[in-house]
Simulated scan of single mutants.
Amino acid sequence: MKLYYFETINGKKACAVAKYVDAPVEFVRVDLSRGEHKAPDYLAINPNGKIPALEDGDIRIWESNAIMCHLARRAKSDLWPVDPAKQIEVMKWLSWNSEHFTRHAGTLYFNHVVKPKFGLGAADEKAVAEAIGFVTPFVAVLDRELEGRTFLLGDHLTVADFAVSVTLPYADKIGLPIKGYNNIARWHAQLGQIPAWQDPFPAAKAAAA
């Protein structure tokens, strides 16, 4: 298997799961700053020109959430539950995250981390203000749902935890309004103790975004 990545939040999710389950992957760094994601050879793997991507034999998988699920299922890891009802719970959180939480937290990340790193200009203050307004009620939802739970699915760590938490390390830098939400703070600190989440990338070849 080959896992194509760069040091961004979506790359982190895929690499962290690969490390966590000790997947037999070859890590291939795609340097976004040099436009390698737009090269014909890479577009043949992922026509969207995004990272991460995974090649597993004849299978090519584009999206970070799908890559996480595939790697966990292939490794028979509890990160992808065996119980079909829990699988639906994982999918609920992945969908909620994509449509609501990281959808808007990602806008903050893009404006405050990606733009400066790649010289894309100043933050769009209107977009930032809108994103904070949109994400704030979902921060409250997340905190309530974590009440009395170790992880999103109770005592069971899953790929959903990695997906939903991926912007939290940047909360102060990007203005993600999580201060005062104790359940989120506890959950985030707990995830930070997982070695694969602390250090997901195969080598520190570039400053992480």
Rank of each mutant, 00 (worst) to 15 (best):
A129G: 09
L94P: 02
Y20V: 05
E125S: 11
F151G: 02
D58C: 05
V166G: 06
K19E: 12
S95E: 07
N111I: 04
A209L: 13
A185D: 11
P177H: 05
R74Q: 15
P47H: 07
V114L: 06
K173E: 12
V166K: 02
A66V: 09
N10A: 14
A23L: 10
I88T: 11
N97D: 15
R34H: 12
D124P: 12
L120A: 06
Y181M: 08
M68H: 04
C15D: 05
F134L: 14
V21C: 05
K205S: 14
D124H: 10
D155P: 08
K86H: 11
P169Y: 05
I9C: 04
E147F: 05
F162M: 12
Q87F: 01
V135L: 10
C15L: 05
V82L: 13
Y181P: 00
D172N: 11
D83E: 14
A53F: 07
E125V: 13
F118A: 07
Y42D: 06
L71E: 04
K13I: 08
K179G: 05
Q198T: 15
A207H: 07
L146R: 09
S33T: 04
I59D: 12
W62C: 13
R74C: 02
V159I: 15
A209Y: 02
I174S: 03
K173Y: 01
F101Q: 03
N97S: 15
K115F: 02
A171T: 00
E99N: 14
R74E: 13
A140C: 02
L3H: 00
K50L: 14
S95I: 14
K92Q: 14
G49E: 08
S33G: 14
H104L: 09
D78L: 12
A131C: 03
P169G: 09
T136F: 03
Y4C: 03
H156R: 13
G106P: 09
T167P: 03
G106W: 13
K38I: 07
C69K: 11
A207C: 03
M91L: 15
E89M: 10
G11F: 08
D172P: 00
E147W: 00
H37G: 03
H112R: 15
S77R: 05
A185F: 00
D124W: 06
D31Y: 05
G192N: 10
K76F: 00
V139L: 08
H156W: 05
G35D: 04
K86F: 04
L71D: 07
A75N: 08
N48A: 12
G133L: 01
V17I: 15
R74S: 14
K50R: 15
L79G: 06
D22T: 10
E26C: 04
V113A: 15
R149S: 13
V128M: 04
F6V: 00
P169W: 03
L94Y: 01
D143I: 09
K2I: 01
G154K: 09
W96Q: 10
A122I: 00
Y170V: 00
K76Q: 15
I45Y: 06
K117R: 15
E99Y: 13
N182Q: 12
A18T: 12
W96R: 11
F6D: 13
R103N: 14
L157F: 11
A23R: 08
V164S: 02
T150A: 14
F27H: 07
F118G: 04
R34D: 09
G121D: 09
C15T: 09
E145H: 13
W93V: 10
N10E: 01
L146N: 09
M68Q: 12
T167S: 12
D41N: 07
K12Q: 10
L152W: 06
V21T: 09
V139M: 07
